[in-house]
Design a protein around this nucleic acid. Structure first.
Length: 623
RNA sequence: GGGGACGUAGCUCAAUUGGUUAGAGUACCGGACUGUCGAUCCGGUGGUUGCGGGUUCGAGUCCCGUCGUCCUCGCCA
């Protein structure tokens, strides 16, 4: 085997290279045997080039005939223009081909458990199988593009923050378990049997200590680990852009992030997202959308009708109001025909969703012409119906959905219904769905017109950012009978709410903010407490005795006394960012080696039992 | 921990009301073929219907259990 090193990549050759002797290396996508020629599509992550073996050289031709899919080859040959009429305009290398003079088989490959070709009408293999053979899955062009996009995103972030004087600093993986928050992944200490490190849920405390140390602009693309149940957009280990700034107030952080988001969308998608992003208070989004991360790509807002319901004769509404509850409604515009009365009965499609969120039931009316119909209609006298129609802007064919309950339950249930209806009524389209449609049509057109296809360009209106601000400091934990931090225990209360900390903790608002994009929480942060006495007070409210606080966070309390500057920051969930940039709703699609829903790595099999001697060294006995 | 969907050839799927020997496409193997481009044509190999039990004259199909995967509620400061 001689001189197999490549001179060009498989995506490089053009008409300008015609006549040159070149060497390509890559994987065989597919071969076409035509009797007198063998065509081999050779592929690497840069592209695909057609290689031709001709029968004039019987030994070479015979050898080429044996080559199969996914073999790794090095091919020496001459670039030549394709025959008249045989050029392909849909790939950049489509006007040329390489006439092979010699080749090396760098590795053979048996038939694979699934196809990596990704032909248009080819159904992808099941995810379980793809995760088991992730190294093959990653060979697919789609995943190669996603990981390249992820690189581009990370690079943009680093360049953006570097240009503004930020330092990328690393913090430990082996740290100390902190109370509250998610379950920790623990690492046993060999030197101190029975003692454990905890892997970081985020670099939160370290970055605050860096602020106190005077590193006033910090960032890190940091791995975070939380041992909680997973979802389509949650992995046990995930990546955050962690940012912290000293002498910053909330708006400094928000506008910095707006600039960063705009830069990321510019470089990764070619989209100019409008800044600044809209802002709403937590109270407002919960009232209007029933969610702290509403998707603003569609309306379907929640409307309060408590006053009208109280005037009605409907017992369920009246008693809910009498008990201090609320009655809220959604007008599912034009959906009266889509949901039969059966689908709206208890146990039907929509009531079941409401019940998922703890609502006791779902009441409804339909607008049949200019009449309201449904079983609860009779409890509303005509003038009240008129007010209802006006409040909810009812038009013929509309479906009204009511939830009567405690404010939080009503918000959750209607928020859940809103999200469900957004999908069911097709109130919005994801940009990648429009792209898929465009691509299919454009491919056809380009082929007919013998030109390269024009790539799809996403639009700014397909990305609806939102800042949610003024979160409450605490929520009452009914199970543990105590206040729990909504953000985290280091979040500063709003200055004017400092008195409320003592008198009415539930009313105190935090200097906390979340960034929401198309219904996904893609970032969250706060201005931190930088005064020791405030931090101690908050610990106290969270039910932590002074002695315990000292034991757990003594280092932080001491540090806060030692010249801590005001500071604050944010963390962006980069996996979710990458999802939305890549056009997927599955976080595993943007992580090279993800875990499955039970947090198992199907490729390596981790987690796995270990040798008993390892456990003995660590002083651990299995349960 | 709760709810839901799914599990049939290497892969993607089909199989009527419970009814004959479980099919198709693709992959793979063999053959034909002078420009293909997911070539085409002809032929062939390939099955513990996830696993265990039950009902039945008869189970891929129905019931129970179990394992696995995904979605979701709780959970994720």
């Amino acid at each position: 085997m001689v001189e197999w090193q490549r001179t060009h990549t498989c995506g490089e050759l053009r008409e300008g290279h015609v006549g040159q002797d070149v060497t390509l290396t890559g994987w065989v996508l597919i071969t076409r045997n035509y009797g007198r020629q063998v065509f081999v599509d050779l592929r690497d992550r840069y592209g695909l080039t057609q290689v031709v073996f001709e029968a004039d050289d019987p030994a070479l031709f015979e050898a080429a005939n044996r080559v199969g899919r996914e073999w790794v080859l090095s091919v020496k040959g001459t670039v030549r223009k394709r025959l008249e009429g045989a050029a392909r305009e849909n790939i950049p290398t489509g006007r040329v081909e390489v006439l092979a003079k010699a080749f090396n088989v760098l590795n053979e490959c048996p038939p694979l458990p699934f196809s990596v070709t990704e032909f248009p009408d080819e159904e992808p293999a099941g995810e379980e199988l793809r995760l088991q053979y992730r190294y093959l899955d990653l060979r697919r062009r789609t995943l190669q593009r996603v990981l390249a996009l992820r690189h581009r995103m990370n690079k943009t972030i680093r360049d953006f923050l570097d240009a503004r004087g930020f330092l990328e600093l690393e913090t430990p993986l082996l740290g100390k378990s902190t109370p509250e928050g998610a379950r920790d992944y623990l690492v046993p200490s060999r030197v101190f049997p029975g003692e454990f490190f905890a892997l970081p849920q985020s670099p939160q405390l370290y970055k605050q200590l860096l602020m106190i140390a005077g590193y006033d602009k910090y960032f890190q693309i940091a791995r975070c680990l939380r041992d909680e149940d997973l979802r389509a957009d949650r992995q046990p280990e995930f990546t955050q852009l962690d940012v912290e700034v000293s002498f910053a107030e909330r708006d400094d952080i928000l506008s910095l992030m707006e600039g960063l988001a705009a830069e990321v969308f510019r470089t990764c998608l070619g989209v100019e997202v409008p800044v600044p992003f809209p802002r709403m208070t937590y109270a407002e989004v919960m009232a209007r959308y029933g969610s702290d991360k509403p998707d603003l790509r569609y309306g379907l807002e929640v409307v309060d009708v408590t006053d009208l319901a109280a005037e009605s004769e409907f017992g369920v509404f009246k008693s809910a109001v009498a008990a201090g509850g609320v009655v809220r409604a959604i007008n599912a515009v034009g959906a009266a025909d889509k949901y039969s009365n059966t689908a709206l009965k208890p146990g039907g499609e929509l009531p079941k969703i409401a019940e998922t969120f703890k609502a006791k039931g779902l009441a409804w009316m339909k607008a049949d012409g200019d009449k309201l119909t449904g079983s609860i209609e009779k409890f509303f006298p005509e003038p009240l119906k008129a007010k209802l129609r006006e409040r909810l802007n009812v038009k013929p064919g509309d479906l009204l959905l009511f939830v009567a309950d405690k404010p939080e339950v009503a918000a959750d249930a209607l928020g859940g219904l809103r999200a469900h209806l957004g999908v069911a009524l097709k109130l919005y389209r994801n940009w990648w769905e429009e792209k898929a449609e465009y691509d299919a049509a454009e491919e056809e057109k380009a082929k007919a017109e013998k030109r390269p296809p024009v790539p799809y360009q996403p639009r700014p209106d397909q990305f609806r950012f939102l800042w949610v601000v003024d979160f409450p400091m605490f929520a009452w934990d009914d199970e543990e009978k105590r206040w729990a931090a909504i953000h985290h225990p280091f979040t500063a209360p709003m200055d004017e709410d400092l008195p409320a900390l003592e008198s009415d903790p539930g009313k105190a608002r935090a200097k906390a903010y979340d960034l929401v994009l198309n219904g996904y929480e893609v970032g969250g942060g706060s201005i931190r407490i930088h005064r020791q006495e405030v931090q101690s007070a908050v610990f106290g409210l969270l039910g932590m005795e002074a002695e315990e606080a000292r034991k757990r966070f003594g280092f932080l309390l001491d540090a806060l006394k030692s010249g801590a500057p005001p500071h604050g920051g944010i963390a962006l969930g980069l996996d979710r960012w990458c999802m939305l940039l890549a056009g997927t709703t599955n976080i595993r699609d943007v992580i090279a080696f993800p875990k499955n829903q039970k947090a198992r790595d199907l490729m390596t099999g981790a987690p796995a039992p270990v040798d008993p001697r390892q456990l003995k060294d660590l002083g651990i006995r299995p349960a």
